[in-house]
Design a protein around this nucleic acid. Structure first.
Lengths: 292, 292
DNA sequence: AGCATTATCTGACTTTAGTCAGATATCGCG
DNA sequence: CGCGATATCTGACTAAAGTCAGATAATGCT
């Protein structure tokens, strides 16, 4: 049982039984699993009834009854949607929030126990990130975000750390031409984060300027998400953003110590040009004309 | 959402939905999940009705009805157990085997598709092994096996490959004092493999001799299973085997390039002794007196 | 205003899963 | 042989999940 397929199937069996255990523990709060799932979906911020139904894959009749039962328990309230009175919006009552926290606490303890029982903590977490990214690759969402949001700052931190590891001389942001956050916000520019579920796994910045071109900055993909074509998706999104901002010419700088980046640019219509700034880190410069 | 617990929970969500997808595809064969699970348990070699019931955690009434429905479909037959007519033994009919293969094919294709869709194949497999080992650590079974079984040879192959990587001068089995398989079979000795589900993840050999002592050889734990105390469990099992064989003195040789092994021996009652053989690879020698 | 579309809800089901109290047959052991 | 233990089965339930055909109400578009 050593071939790749058997290994995947062994993994499936192992997680199936672990997942089953969590479901069983959820039953411990005296509520059927279906109702518990709806309650948790609402707790995690999914308020729109239709959205919850899609997310959980429920029939509309069933969904309606589950909502009713949670309402009867006094855990949720529903209101008509502001802009469309056909739609309903659910929210937790005070009691619902308590109940939701109890489920959250169970999930958290279970996760903590798993981590505490095992000594290869960092290796396990990296393995989990990798597998989760592979499993959810079709559900990676690219979202425009503020360059100073938690998600963006996480990505940038990881990006700088990686440059520090990969450049022979290390990397110090303060020596680099660090773009101003405001140049990566509309209307000057844009900052796009790739989210897999709740985890930021990649980013790219579009930095506007008044030199007649905008720059692509801080393209980063988490190690656990490489090989999924995410770099290309981020670059496309950045180009789309540039188009909506009426920008026709893009430039970027990079370093030959990051060969996969250079490779990506060369195969997606970028053209090498002479140095156009005095940042000490980059040694490769590219330009791309985009058409609206 | 970057703290360890959130990462574990993101992983949980990702695999939950993947596992759910497989369950749904199992429904595609027009049979409720419960019946499909019983059929697959039988196909995987679990024939005893009680064993299946335990494995799947079913009530005896429910189990009985599921068996009956599979029988009505003509997929299985049940007979009284040879030695105990109260127990029943189930087996697949020809049609049952066909149906089972159809489920197997679905599981295999799903696994293959997952591997094919992702480029980091080896990294993914290693991550899956690691997580599966961590999740099933309580269910790792140590089994005495023939040193020439597939499982044993897999372990030995991995062991030699690892020595090759860790010894500065590499490792060539033919230069080492490779123990004869027959010295690691009863009644001379023993060979023990640690199985996690169907995957061999560790081994140890007990090599009998006529010098008044036996040797511990080929202690190996798969990288994905380190940190679970498996080395110690394997050593204990080998000592137990020695006791049942009436052996009172154990020796072993090892190399200082494998510090975790030396550490294990020192903390479990082994005492360093002078070189007792002319094998070119080891540079550390230990001995342990065991009491019956 | 009229009408097809959309979102949700209600009522009337069926199927699946699970529970529990006996019934039946066999076994191990004195 | 007799008796308590064990393995499975049957019947009679309940609960949960899921299905489906309308009903109701609001919306978007002409």
């Amino acid at each position: 049982m050593l071939d790749p397929v058997s290994r995947v199937r062994r993994f499936n069996r192992a997680v199936t039984s672990a997942v089953g255990a969590l479901d069983t523990s959820f039953l411990g709060r005296g509520r059927p699993l279906g109702a518990a799932r709806v309650l948790n979906a609402i707790g995690h911020g999914r308020s729109d009834v239709g959205e919850i139904r899609d997310y959980l894959g429920l029939d509309s009749g069933l969904m309606s009854r589950l909502l009713r039962s949670l309402e009867d328990e006094g855990l949720i309230e529903t209101h008509a949607h502001e802009d469309d009175a056909r739609r309903r919006v659910a929210s937790l009552t005070r009691a619902g929030k308590r109940e939701f926290s109890a489920y959250e606490a169970m999930s958290n303890t279970q996760a903590e126990r798993f981590l505490a029982r095992n000594s290869q903590r960092e290796a396990l977490l990296a393995a989990m990130d990798l597998i989760a990214s592979a499993l959810t690759r079709d559900r990676i969402a690219l979202t425009e975000m503020d360059p100073q949001s938690d998600e963006a700052r996480h990505c940038l931190g990881e990006y700088y750390a990686e440059l520090g590891r990969r450049f022979k001389q290390g990397f110090d942001v303060s020596l680099s031409r660090d773009p101003d956050a405001k140049d990566m916000r509309r209307p000057q520019g844009s900052f796009i984060v790739a989210m897999s579920d709740t985890l930021p796994i990649g980013c790219v910045g579009l930095k506007g300027s008044d030199h007649g071109y905008a720059e692509i900055k801080r393209l980063w993909v988490a190690p656990s998400a490489r090989g999924l074509g995410l770099g290309k998706r981020l670059m496309n999104a950045a180009e789309d953003a540039a188009r909506t901002l009426g920008i026709a010419l893009l430039r970027l700088d990079t370093n030959s110590a990051l060969p996969e980046a250079g490779q990506l640019y060369r195969t997606t219509g970028w053209r090498e040009i002479p140095r156009f700034n005095d940042d000490p880190y980059p040694d490769l410069f590219f330009e791309k004309q985009i058409r609206a």
